[in-house]
Write a protein that binds this DNA or RNA. Structure first.
Lengths: 199, 199
DNA sequence: TATATATGTGAATATATATTCACAATAAGT
DNA sequence: ACTTATTGTGAATATATATTCACATATATA
């Protein structure tokens, strides 16, 4: 077989993305080196030219997740200065992100990812906290500007923000796409934002 | 070795519970027949006297989950007739339930449980929908009694209800218990219930 | 162009894990 | 007490999967 030889950086990228997609389509259990290799058009042992471990592959995939989440925050913060509108847009982008890559929640919320990997566990924890902090920051700013009611903790809001999406995303997946995430999120946002608004 | 011989029903019970606990402490990947057997004080092959498969064991564990969830609804509905108070109590019980058995969310929300098991997937979906329906029923009743604002869909409320707990539970676990679920849920409930109340 | 380094291959190895089966011991029914 | 069905055991089997290694080939560099 004559397979094109590519730079290890390119391969690392390919492999990490493929891993994320594999988890999306076949779950964490479905992430095997053999399948991963096939997906990239390589032979299993070739993966080890670019990653020391299967663990390193997963860690790389987690890097993409972090980037995807934080990028969304950056984007919406540039689009608008109204904090509530900012949150609304982030909500939409977040739904879009995990709809397009179901591997994200599966990795973030799968215990099998951390078990026996305390460093990774704290890393993912930091990623989630980081994201929530950004959301909380938007809330705090909105409160300072007097556009969000001041009697609620930003940290509480940011977690409830996640809570609008996550259970819905799971139902969406369990129902094989039958459950309408977008609809739910819109409804939830309506009540949530009404509550947040200063009267 | 002289191991006590017990009725298959007793063993099934033991094994299913042990499976749930194993998932709680070691994740789904940690649920091996060997470990399971050791936990119950048996030898791996003995499990097959009481279950055809590892899959059957998991299915039995899922049965316990369903029971646990629905029992909570029954309990709180008996305790009080005020729908908001009913939801508040259910919230507390729910947190208690998953704190005491982290295996519940891990099984319900782990994709590896369904992958390649469409029947199980729809079963779990039905369980979750069933629970949400009960919650939605409480809301609907509250609306009929005029104690919950009528301009919000019960289905939306019930999912948001879950959303108060689930992300918090995950943070709780990722932080090794450092994150205070109860505190978050109390705060979240404060804002949520205030919104639901008829003004 | 020659040589070295990076990348890809195929076979081999090691390990974990589910599952089966022949046999042993215990409990239940007669 | 005797027989039988149920439950437990230990060894054996099968399979999946990560990982290694000697070898091959392409790409860059001198």
């Amino acid at each position: 077989m004559s397979t094109e030889k590519l730079d290890t950086e390119v391969r690392q990228d390919q492999i990490a993305r493929a891993a994320l997609n594999l988890v999306a389509s076949h779950g964490l259990k479905g992430l095997s080196m053999a399948r991963l290799a096939r997906r990239v058009g390589l032979v299993p042992s070739a993966i080890y030219r670019h990653f020391k471990d299967k663990d390193e592959v997963l860690d790389a995939a987690i890097g993409y997740i972090q980037k995807g989440l934080l990028d969304n925050v950056t984007v919406v913060c540039k689009e608008t200065s109204d904090p509530l509108d900012c949150l609304r847009r982030l909500l939409i982008l977040h739904v879009k992100l995990i709809r397009e890559n179901q591997g994200i929640p599966r990795i973030i919320f799968s215990e099998d990812v951390y078990n026996g990997h305390p460093e990774r566990k704290t890393r993912v924890y930091e990623i989630v906290k980081g994201y929530l902090d950004r959301v909380g920051g938007i809330v705090r700013q909105g409160q300072q500007e007097g556009r969000i009611r001041p009697d609620v903790e930003p940290a509480t809001v940011s977690l409830m923000f996640l809570g609008m999406i996550q259970p819905a995303a799971i139902l969406w997946h369990m129902s094989d796409g039958e459950f309408d995430v977008t609809r739910h999120v819109e409804k939830a946002w309506k009540t949530f934002s009404e509550y947040l608004k200063t009267k």
